[in-house]
Amino acid sequence: MTVADALMLALGAIAVGSGVFVVTSTHLVRAGFYLVVSLGAIAGLYLVLGAELVAWVQILVYVGAVVVLMLFAVMLTRAPIGPSKDLDRPALPAALIGGGVGLGLTVLLVDAFRWTEFELPPPGTGRRVGEQIFGAWVLPFEVLSILLLAALVGAIVLSRPDIGARPDPNAGPEPEGPPPGPVDESEEVVARLQRIAERQAAAQQRVRDQRAAAERAEQAELDVVEGELVEEARQTDPLADVVLRAHEARPKPGGPPPEPKRELPGAPEREED
């Protein structure tokens, strides 16, 4: 039991404990803050494990950016300040699967490493990581940068409805009122969107009315035709007619032979004989 072990145990306890609060808290905002604590503790773990750069990046990116972004999202979705009632589903399946995963992984890892003593590596420096990133891993690094760019563009496109919006004939009217939350659209855009929505709503109403009228007419016509058909069937049953006529018209096997088409050629000759 070294100092490193003690530190790791403590930091691990903090990370797991606040993680528990992240997934159980009924306050959205508190969950975010517990996440900060948990991620910070993990950054501490990185430091103990000698990955300094990763630790600082963790603090910067996660604590500084990701969590803040999430808190913004919490704010923009108008989450209640107090506890929310409907944050959770029934716990049993989640607890079963989560507990199973945790138990399984823990058993696996404990069984793999036991209480083995490892030599603590020398604290890493930014130099080593930098050399590796720009040496051996430069291609994945570039690919990652493209991915980041794509994510950036995607996020912008997603959050700006006026970019690439198509007039969708099936789409209903936009929600009433100015768009909620963060989208600070200009007055012009809002007005245009509203005009579009109104036109679409009117057109849809027109189409719906026409369709309903056509259906009503068709139904009425159908009723009339059906009535006639029933009437006709009552008067002359076509099936019975076909069957009976065919029966009467069929040739009788034992009946008299058909009429001869011509006179028998032998008949006149008989007198000569």
Partner: peptide, 21 residues
């Protein structure tokens, strides 16, 4: 009585006779 075998589709002649040439 009916013609049992109207092979050549002849009606019953009045009298049997020798066949045509």
């Amino acid at each position: 009585w009916e013609v049992g075998f109207d092979d050549a589709r002849y009606t019953q002649p009045a009298l049997p006779h020798d066949p045509p040439a």
